[in-house]
Simulated scan of single mutants.
Amino acid sequence: MKLPDTEHTSRPWRIHEIAPDFRLYDVWALPTPGGPDDFARLIRNTTAGDTSNSPSWIARTLFAIRWKLGRLFGWDDPKQGVGTRVRTLRDRLPQDLRDAPPGPEFERLPFTSVYLTDDEWASEMANSTVHGVMHLSWVPDTEHGGYRGQMAVLVKPNGWFGRAYMALIAPFRHVLVYPPLMRSISKEWRESAGRG
Results as ranks from 00 to 15, higher is better:
V86E: 11
V86P: 05
R87T: 14
R87D: 15
T88Q: 03
L89T: 03
L89K: 05
L89M: 10
R90F: 04
D91M: 11
D91Y: 04
R92D: 08
R92K: 09
L93A: 05
L93K: 10
P94T: 09
P94V: 08
P94F: 13
Q95R: 13
D96M: 07
D96F: 06
L97E: 03
L97A: 02
L97D: 05
D99H: 10
P101Y: 04
P101H: 12
P101I: 01
P102S: 11
P102Q: 01
P104T: 05
P104R: 08
P104K: 07
E105F: 00
E105K: 07
R108Q: 08
F111C: 10
F111D: 08
F111H: 08
T112D: 02
T112H: 09
S113N: 02
S113K: 03
S113C: 03
V114E: 05
V114Y: 00
Y115E: 10
T117H: 04
T117V: 00
D118H: 09
E124K: 03
M125V: 11
A126T: 09
A126E: 06
N127M: 00
N127D: 15
V130F: 07
H131Y: 01
G132T: 08
G132C: 03
G132W: 01
V133H: 05
M134R: 00
M134D: 06
H135M: 02
S137F: 02
W138L: 01
V139E: 06
P140Q: 05
D141K: 08
D141R: 10
D141C: 02
D141N: 14
T142M: 12
E143T: 11
E143N: 10
E143S: 12
E143V: 13
E143K: 13
E143F: 00
G145W: 01
G145M: 05
G146P: 04
G146Q: 13
Y147S: 04
Y147V: 09
R148Q: 12
G149T: 08
M151P: 02
M151V: 11
A152L: 06
A152H: 06
V153F: 06
V155L: 15
V155E: 15
V155G: 11
P157A: 10
N158S: 14
N158E: 15
N158V: 14
N158K: 12
G159P: 10
G159A: 14
W160M: 13
W160L: 15
F161V: 02
F161N: 03
G162N: 05
G162I: 02
Y165T: 03
M166L: 12
M166E: 12
A167R: 09
I169N: 08
I169E: 08
A170P: 00
P171H: 02
P171D: 07
P171V: 06
F172L: 15
R173Q: 12
R173I: 07
H174K: 11
H174Q: 13
V175N: 09
V175L: 14
V177D: 00
P179C: 13
P179A: 08
P180E: 13
M182P: 01
R183D: 09
R183W: 11
S184M: 13
